[in-house]
Computed example of a mutant assay.
Amino acid sequence: MARILVVDDDPRLVKVVSTLLRKHHHRVEAVPTGELARQALRRGNVDITLLDVNLPDVNGLSLILEMRQEGNDVPVILLTVRTEVHDQTLGLRLGGDDYITKPFNPEVLLARIEAVLRRTQGTAGVQRDDEADDHLLEIPPIVIDFAARQVFKNGEVVRLAPLEYSILEFLAANRGRAVSKEELMLDVWGTSRGVSRTLAEHISRLRRKLGDGLIVTQTGYGYLVPGAR
């Protein structure tokens, strides 16, 4: 299991890629802009990044160069519609570890991710044998098993609907960071339109099942699962 940051402003692509990666037991954080990617990468806890070259606020190649100049060596796979050899070569020379052109076959993407992780796992912080419990997150009295997609409260299994679990997983993976409603809706539903009330209903059900203190409302912005004290 790896912790994967997906940086792309196409909600449909993000939804497909995130679903695919989670089915293979990876933990996924998705952001639509370069600025949010910077914040996520500076927080750490990322094993590999899938980075769109054409972001709305910054060129992905510039973001790679900035990362490497800051000493951030998290592996990066570029997602690009550019097929010119020059563009692909430039991305690799600036610090990219691999590239894949859009549209791509999901199985090819998985294979590329696995190949990059094999090459870099010595320095990228990917789960090792002595980190076998890395897939567990404990926020007493709640324990989340990301690999099994199960949630426990006081040692008892809590039955969550698939969308409820997806919301909790995204908030927990971003523990300690306030997540906007738009970002959360894009990750879970693949759109930020027309699902705000549905999101609020799912949050309410999660609180009834898990307790009021786990998910904190950030008024006028979104939600937060508090970090470790």
Rank of each mutant, 00 (worst) to 15 (best):
G91T: 09
S166K: 13
L36V: 00
R119M: 15
R3W: 04
T217C: 01
Q218M: 14
L110E: 10
H135F: 01
W189N: 05
R197W: 10
R82M: 11
E107K: 13
A172F: 06
M67Y: 08
D212F: 05
L5E: 02
E66C: 09
A148V: 07
P162E: 07
L160G: 06
R229Y: 10
E156K: 13
L65R: 15
V76N: 01
V151L: 10
T123L: 08
N105W: 03
L61H: 08
G44N: 06
E107F: 08
L79P: 01
T123H: 08
L224R: 08
A2I: 01
V143L: 15
L92D: 00
H135M: 02
V195C: 14
H202T: 04
R128A: 14
G222W: 06
K153W: 03
G211Q: 00
T120E: 06
P103Y: 02
V158I: 14
G213S: 15
G44P: 08
S180Y: 01
L214C: 06
L36D: 15
F170E: 13
Q150C: 03
V85H: 03
F170Y: 15
V157L: 15
I77N: 00
R119H: 06
I4D: 06
P141D: 12
E164L: 01
I113G: 06
D134M: 07
V108F: 06
H24K: 14
